[in-house]
Simulated assay, not measured.
Amino acid sequence: MIRHLVLFKLNEGVAKDDQRVLAGVKAFAELGPLIPELREWECGWNITERDIAYDYAINSLVEDRESLQSYLTHPAHQAAAGQWREFATWVIADLEV
């Protein structure tokens, strides 16, 4: 199994209530049931307000590297991630668990 983690940081001057952000959050919230390779899907806002904290996170689980690649190239994932490119940066980690 592979745990896929993504942490998002909103760009300077972009607020959580920005219409682009709200649309991006909605797109990610809807991904779970759309992509069959996802065994688990969680996403949401960070609740801490520390300087080093990221703003939004995705925590997902897939079966193997092939499933991860299928998820990453899925059109729904590509569309959702494309929205976030407009207003955020992110870091990822893929852990074999």
Rank of each mutant, 00 (worst) to 15 (best):
residue 23 A to F: 13
residue 56 Y to T: 02
residue 71 Y to R: 03
residue 19 Q to G: 08
residue 37 E to I: 02
residue 58 I to W: 00
residue 9 K to A: 05
residue 1 M to Q: 07
residue 65 R to F: 05
residue 70 S to V: 10
residue 27 A to N: 11
residue 1 M to K: 11
residue 29 A to Y: 03
residue 21 V to Y: 02
residue 51 D to R: 06
residue 74 H to T: 02
residue 90 W to R: 07
residue 72 L to P: 02
residue 54 Y to A: 03
residue 72 L to M: 14
residue 13 G to M: 04
residue 29 A to Q: 15
residue 36 P to D: 15
residue 87 F to H: 05
residue 13 G to W: 09
residue 23 A to L: 13
residue 85 R to Q: 12
residue 45 W to L: 01
residue 70 S to E: 14
residue 52 I to F: 09
residue 21 V to R: 10
residue 26 K to W: 08
residue 63 E to N: 05
residue 62 V to R: 03
residue 76 A to Y: 15
residue 81 A to P: 03
residue 80 A to G: 11
residue 61 L to K: 09
residue 47 I to E: 12
residue 42 E to F: 13
residue 3 R to G: 00
residue 81 A to C: 02
residue 39 R to D: 11
residue 34 L to I: 04
residue 60 S to V: 01
residue 8 F to H: 03
residue 60 S to F: 00
residue 33 P to I: 08
residue 42 E to R: 15
residue 45 W to P: 01
residue 84 W to F: 11
residue 97 V to K: 04
residue 95 L to F: 14
residue 32 G to I: 10
residue 51 D to N: 04
residue 6 V to N: 00
residue 33 P to W: 11
residue 32 G to W: 11
residue 30 E to P: 10
residue 36 P to Y: 02
residue 23 A to E: 15
residue 64 D to A: 00
residue 17 D to L: 08
residue 16 K to T: 12
residue 65 R to N: 13
residue 50 R to L: 07
residue 55 D to S: 06
residue 42 E to H: 15
residue 95 L to N: 09
residue 82 G to E: 12
residue 81 A to M: 08
residue 9 K to L: 03
residue 60 S to H: 01
residue 85 R to I: 05
residue 63 E to Q: 13
residue 27 A to K: 09
residue 30 E to N: 15
residue 89 T to M: 05
residue 8 F to R: 00
residue 29 A to W: 01
